[in-house]
Design a protein around this nucleic acid. Structure first.
Lengths: 214, 214
DNA sequence: TAGGAAAAGTGAGTATACTCACGATTTATT
DNA sequence: AATAAATCGTGAGTATACTCACTTTTCCTA
């Protein structure tokens, strides 16, 4: 008897999706409540009602599992940006800073655990790491995203040619802002916002003066 | 009978020093040969001829142990700088870049394992980390060191007032260069050196144009 | 529909960073 | 010197991320 219902995806795939979602749901709840280090893989699997080994069929390491959420945010950040018509017309610096601002907004519910893995999330991946970063492609997607924005601005004559270096530098700046944000204890993270604003002005002034000459 | 020899330091302190040195020696050898993750704390203690528990009386975590070497280098980097009369007269940018250049030179023998911990070494420490970073003071020492250089240049009218932010930014740039250096597979790390040079020129041009206006 | 191949799930087992209660050693006190 | 107190060393024990040989489930073909 073939399974009832609409048989668009096979049972195998459906089950896999279900398990995957169960893991992610359980993990997010536990990470958010007890932090990355306070959550054991055993607890996650129990909550997801699977064997502990199964978890590792889906995510090579616990860190990869946590990284997933960070990458999710990076992805949806790009989607958000594409949907913001207003930003398409704004000057480059404003666009770039809106990206970071929005990103911080989105990850703020998870502040307590994101710190444990964010460093690996934006860092250009190194051969040294024995940690299995399945996120290579996410890095590239983010990099190309930023690179695309810079390219546009370059051809529009808005900024001088900054090449890959520009995108790379922005990624590091992004990282730096998250670092600052994580430590910021001011109400409403106003210090971080102030710093972002300041940097916006600096960057604007810098580029207006002609930037660097390669 | 009081112990023979000159009794300047007590026996306790002498033994402690000896043990500490034994641990560091064993750890450095193993880390350099087998990397951070390929070296077990058990192997380190065996090589240092101590019990495994003793190791943790001296270093709270394995990561702290590795971090020690990185901090050592940061310390001796400062000493090296103080002893370089030539640099005292050089323009600020040249001084700052000499610092990074020299640092990379010094850590190059340990490239294979330093990558595992360097991120934590220069990163401003966060409350989030459950890792016991005894290195707080090292961060501060390094920060004050850079801040001092910037202060000099500011009072000399060489650069505009950049405040703590300048020192912080330089720290992040330093971090970025190490990241790049770790991934650089070109012979003699020439790509990293080229990038350093390029950044030197950019920074020089930037500051010459008046920098930013706070 | 039967049987077998492929995929997914399982949980006892392994490796290892780190702890802790206790014993050994050094120092301080009389 | 005898004893007490402080410090240091010890290694069996613990917690937990991750593995793997095996079982169960799903899919495919005749």
């Amino acid at each position: 008897m073939t399974a009832g219902s609409k048989s668009k995806p096979g049972k195998r795939i459906r089950n896999k999706e279900k398990t995957r979602r169960a893991i992610l749901k359980a993990a997010l709840e536990l990470f958010a409540r007890q932090g990355f280090f306070g959550t054991t893989t055993k607890a996650i699997s129990r909550k997801a009602r699977i064997a502990e080994g199964t978890l590792f069929n889906y995510f090579k390491t616990k860190e990869d599992l946590a990284l997933y959420f960070f990458e999710q945010e990076l992805e949806s950040l790009q989607e958000w940006f594409e949907s913001e018509a207003r930003l398409k017309k704004a000057p480059l610096t404003e666009r770039l800073f809106a990206i970071i601002h929005h990103h911080l907004d989105r990850i703020s519910p998870y502040e307590d655990f994101i710190g444990a893995v964010y460093l690996r999330a934006l860092q250009p991946s190194s051969k040294l790491s024995p940690l299995s970063l399945s996120s290579q492609e996410h890095h590239w997607k983010y990099f190309r995203f930023i690179r695309g924005l810079l390219d546009e601005a370059e051809t529009a004559g808005e900024i001088p040619n900054v090449g890959d270096f520009g995108a790379y530098a922005f990624g590091l700046f992004h990282l730096a802002m998250i670092t600052y944000w994580l430590q910021d204890r001011s109400p409403g993270k106003e210090q971080t916002l102030a710093l972002l604003d300041r940097c916006l002005k600096i960057a604007t002034g810098f580029l207006r003066k002609g930037g660097w000459d390669w």
